[in-house]
Design a protein around this nucleic acid. Structure first.
Lengths: 218, 218
DNA sequence: TTTATTTTTTAGACAAGACTAAAAAATAAA
DNA sequence: TTTATTTTTTAGTCTTGTCTAAAAAATAAA
């Protein structure tokens, strides 16, 4: 059994590993956890002793298979709870993160098994992120950023990269949500902005928006 | 905002106050929390500083109005989660306590408001215990122990005093649950045992059983 | 390659909560 | 009322997880 703090470290390192080649740096972990590097060093040494990550002084850390599975399990719980909050309790998708951040630390295998079943074994959370299975395996998805598409390409919105309230509320205003069909009508090479079609509406989106929207091309 | 430990102390003291006249003794709290009296003294002094209870050295403690409300709120959350676990996730009523013990510490007003609504504003948890409203008020119930009834009296099971797995499983075996109609067919003054009718079955229950079953007479 | 800068680690301290051992107060027994 | 027992508190220690300040290693610049 892992403490709340340990689970949070594992989760942070797991996410950081996705975007980095070698080991994850102490500073990177500190920044993500909003803590000091010295605290990270302490915790990382403790977690190395527990066998969930490998760590060499000054060389960064890498999760072991055990560590990855543990982290994936926390992520699984987080995302299942998010589905619960949105689907059942009718929360808006930009309100659920903080609460799921607490719920993910509830310890009970049986609870998650039943919750998963109750929710109909969802594969994705309300932001389009995949929910790993109990063994920590993620379903591979071939999603791309909207910014990678070119003129005339079509696709379905399957997720967001950025999850800030501001961004999610922008999407709402534009009636874009998971499952929304999007067509690229034009793309400006100079600044990466696009004209897209969403339902009957056509409008302009900046590069920043296009780089934070995941699309599955059809 | 109160820490997990603080909430657990408030809850324990709240329950202890129900069964005791004056202030609650340090030893009683220690026993209920499975901790040492010295730890209780420390915490109780801290909670007194926060204004949730009044404490005089060697004299025991009493919750203030603020403390009672806070405790009631934790209890409210615990019991609502229990309803969720039993009604929605189909847990058995003897399996939910431990999990609710964790869920009760999730901090979010909105979550509880929505959960309450989702569950249909239940007044009682799966063990028949009343769920206080958001202001900490308990609905008064005129429930009595089965052991207080006499021959020929009828009633409906509305709750249990003892909540151990063993007891709840005994009740299951006898097909007794919340809402079950029970009639006292006979009572033995010597040992307090009874013959009762449940559905089509008639059987013997010991004094110990009768003293742990709450009945609402009709 | 030597110097400067950045990153990381160590050392020591602190807060929350718990514990043990010993002292003090309250209660019960003689 | 004095003595014995129980209850409660105090004092000091420990663990977890954090912090600051300073030292050490790694990296970048000159």
């Amino acid at each position: 059994m892992y403490s709340l703090a340990e689970e949070n470290y594992l989760k942070a390192i797991f996410h950081l590993e996705e975007n980095v080649k070698g080991g994850v740096s102490t500073n990177a972990i500190a920044e993500r956890m909003a803590t000091k590097p010295s605290s990270v060093t302490d915790m990382v040494q403790k977690l190395a002793d527990k066998g969930v990550l490998s760590y060499k002084k000054y060389k960064g850390t890498t999760l072991t298979a055990k560590g990855k599975k543990t982290a994936a399990n926390v992520i699984r719980k987080h995302r299942l709870w998010e589905v619960f909050l949105v689907d059942k309790l009718k929360f808006h998708w930009d309100e659920v993160h903080e609460i799921a951040e607490q719920l993910e630390h509830i310890h009970s295998e049986e609870l998650i098994t039943r919750l998963d079943k109750y929710l109909g074994h969802p594969d994705f959370d309300p932001h389009g992120d995949p929910i790993p299975d109990k063994d920590g395996n993620f379903k591979a998805t071939e999603k791309r950023l909207l910014s990678e598409l070119t003129k005339k390409q079509k696709g379905v919105c399957v997720g967001v990269k950025e999850t800030s309230s501001e961004f999610l509320q922008y999407l709402d205003k534009r009636k874009i949500t998971i499952g929304t069909k999007i067509t690229v009508l034009g793309k400006e090479f100079f600044d990466g902005s696009m004209i897209i079609q969403v339902g009957r509406d056509q409008f302009f989106v900046s590069k920043k928006i296009a780089e934070n929207l995941f699309i599955q091309t059809t």
